[in-house]
Amino acid sequence: MEISNYMREEHRSCDEAFAKAEQAASSGDFKEAFKHFEEFMIDTLKHFSKEEEILFPTFEEVSGSTEGPTQVMRYEHGQVRELLEQLKNAIDSEDKERFFSVADTLMILLQQHNMKEEQMLYAMCDRLLAPQARELVEKMKEH
């Protein structure tokens, strides 16, 4: 449970920053929206980095598989990165309509992505990586 709890908390933290960006954009305060969006983007990309550089390689090594869930998650990370860039452009141009169009797409993708990670991949990690869970979480905290 240690890995899934840590990673789930990161998902929630990112969700909160994104909600604040949406609230600010909704009221037309794009300066404030950018501040919260930037926090969301940095935290999300840092989270992806922890997964791609620490968690996924360890999972793949122990499970003996580079196909399957980690490959799907990496692909979805790429989709999220593209949407983040589009969202940043919408904020930069103060395009509220474009912002919410991209934000809706991003939120649907992230909700589905996070659910797959939390219900499947992290549970698998908790089982397979239990002996090194504490060490992995510490490594990710330092990353």
Rank of each mutant, 00 (worst) to 15 (best):
I3V: 09
S4P: 00
S4E: 01
R8L: 07
R8W: 09
E9G: 05
S13V: 11
C14E: 13
C14R: 09
E16A: 15
E16F: 07
A17N: 14
A17R: 13
A21E: 03
A21R: 01
A24K: 07
A24G: 10
F30Y: 12
K31V: 12
E32W: 01
E32S: 13
A33F: 02
K35R: 14
F37S: 15
E38S: 15
E38T: 15
E39Q: 14
F40R: 14
T44E: 12
F48H: 14
S49R: 13
E52A: 10
E53S: 13
E53P: 06
F56I: 01
F56W: 04
E60N: 01
G64M: 03
S65W: 02
E67Q: 10
G68F: 00
T70R: 03
Q71T: 10
M73L: 10
R74P: 04
Y75M: 13
Q79V: 07
Q79N: 15
R81C: 03
L84K: 10
L84F: 05
Q86C: 09
A90H: 01
I91S: 06
I91G: 06
E94C: 06
E94A: 11
D95M: 01
R98V: 03
S101V: 04
L106M: 15
L106Q: 12
L106E: 11
I108S: 13
I108C: 07
L109P: 05
L110K: 14
L110F: 05
Q112C: 08
N114P: 00
M115L: 09
K116P: 01
E117Q: 01
Q119M: 13
C125E: 08
D126H: 00
Q132H: 06
A133G: 08
R134E: 13
V137I: 11
K141G: 03
